[in-house]
Write a protein that binds this DNA or RNA. Structure first.
Lengths: 124, 124
DNA sequence: CGGTATCCGACCGGATACTG
DNA sequence: CAGTATCCGGTCGGATACCG
């Protein structure tokens, strides 16, 4: 599965802090993936078509994109809406759960903007 | 290096949103690693010894732990303070940059606590 | 105590080809 | 258009053994 880090944490080691640690592990786990944060960021403002996302991420292989989208869907962060048309059309959007993740995305964006270009040591 | 996802984003594809996307990619990148979030969470309240962290994470292999700590240090999120004693003693603590990451940790903890136990579909 | 060094297996992202 | 199927190579985490 690799769905949860539960295995490693379900022991006595983390006893009293189990809930907090498990929470973080869970969040990190469902967001692990090369493009997940970017995809969520892109869906943050509005619904997008598959082709839009693909174009936005430019040269991402279709296989990779589909995989990431499927995982996000599986973990309940995005909705997948299929229109039975020809040619087919699929829209992706954040679920309510996904929307609750937006504040995190925003903070990560801020953090990255602030520190992303600093390559020198910066050790307090 | 794998230090940055820059390669994939430095193209025209993301032109106007380059800064935002790059920020998120940067943040995700320096936090990628099986134990990083947990370690930061554990250091959030106070300085910790190597052996403390190791004990907290219980059965993490030393090699893995050291590697994660080195990467966090390299990326300027934690300080490594060595006491020239026998036996040796090493303390880890958050840098100012690392401390700015605390809000994100807190949100991820909240998010995980809220959704971590829901395994049923929950698609909005 | 707090590491290095080394090896290995699993997983994941990426590429390519094909399809409804 | 929006996938699926398949393969491959790199990377990372984990395990084990040794060191200052």
């Amino acid at each position: 599965m690799s769905r949860l880090y539960k295995d490693g944490f379900d022991k006595e080691c983390i006893k009293e802090h189990r809930e907090e640690v498990y929470g973080i592990a869970y969040t990190q786990n469902i967001l692990s993936g090369r493009w997940k944060y970017i995809i969520l960021w892109y869906l943050k403002t509005k619904e997008r078509r598959y082709s839009e996302i693909k174009a936005f991420l430019w040269d991402i292989p279709q296989g990779s994109l589909t995989k990431q989208l499927r995982e996000l869907e599986r973990d309940g962060l995005i909705n997948r809406k299929v229109y039975p048309e020809v040619p087919p059309r699929v829209d992706y959007s954040l679920t309510s759960k996904g929307k609750e993740f937006i504040p995190i995305i925003n903070l990560m964006e801020e953090f990255g903007k602030k520190f992303g270009e600093q390559f020198g040591e910066q050790v307090d």
